[in-house]
Write a protein that binds this DNA or RNA. Sequence first.
DNA 1: CAGGATCCTTTACGATACTG
DNA 2: CAGTATCGTAAAGGATCCTG
Lengths: 125, 125
Amino acid sequence: MEKEKKYTIAECRQSLTAIKDVMELLSGKWKFRIIGGLMINGKMRFMDLLRTVDGIAAKMLSKELVELEQNELLTRTVLNTKPITVEYELTAHGKTLAPLITTIASWGISHRRFLFRKRKPVPQL
Amino acid sequence: MEKEKKYTIAECRQSLTAIKDVMELLSGKWKFRIIGGLMINGKMRFMDLLRTVDGIAAKMLSKELVELEQNELLTRTVLNTKPITVEYELTAHGKTLAPLITTIASWGISHRRFLFRKRKPVPQL
DNA sequence: CAGGATCCTTTACGATACTG
DNA sequence: CAGTATCGTAAAGGATCCTG
């Protein structure tokens, strides 16, 4: 009874573009780590992020934060302290990434198990 | 009534590793295009892929296919034809990527709409 | 046809030093 | 503290040519 779902050319192209958008925005070594940190901890200052996302250099963190802010995934707030401090926080839109992250993580977990069962070498934790 | 979901350190680390795995496997310019093509068309020969995934060079296609095969997302079958032909097809495991792809694509679509509503410049289709 | 070899360009990322 | 500037390396990707 089930009809196989078919896709129009337009739908395919739209999806491919959307995937490309997401990849350009979120791929690289740090984006998910930054977003993940903010999801768990809420508001964080630059230094907090620098410590939490370990291994990242200030220059990279700064660059990544700008990109994320331009895409309105997070807000940047400069506080009136003696040496200034800046707080970063996910926007409501940024929080909509949660299901995406969950989906990716759970496929990744099952993929790792899959390779393990096949006795394939798997990158270290 | 709802309790907020909490995560242990171990769960976080596992998720981060899983996301890193997925990104290493699927990021780059071509992987999703290749997998998408195979999802829609089923079995495809090297040349079919070269034409479908437009813009890709033979060298890149070849390299990407090897990686995907090593991860058992697809199978490679050499046929007994005069000039040999090779067929690629998603494995059952490869097909489990479908929900992941759908999730990414739909977040991407709504993100693009979000930026558009805000009158932010958006990359061309 | 499928794909490897070679060479080249571009982008991502890292280390260190510096400034308001 | 929150960055920027400068410089350097490594990895991704592209173009072209070659072969069983």
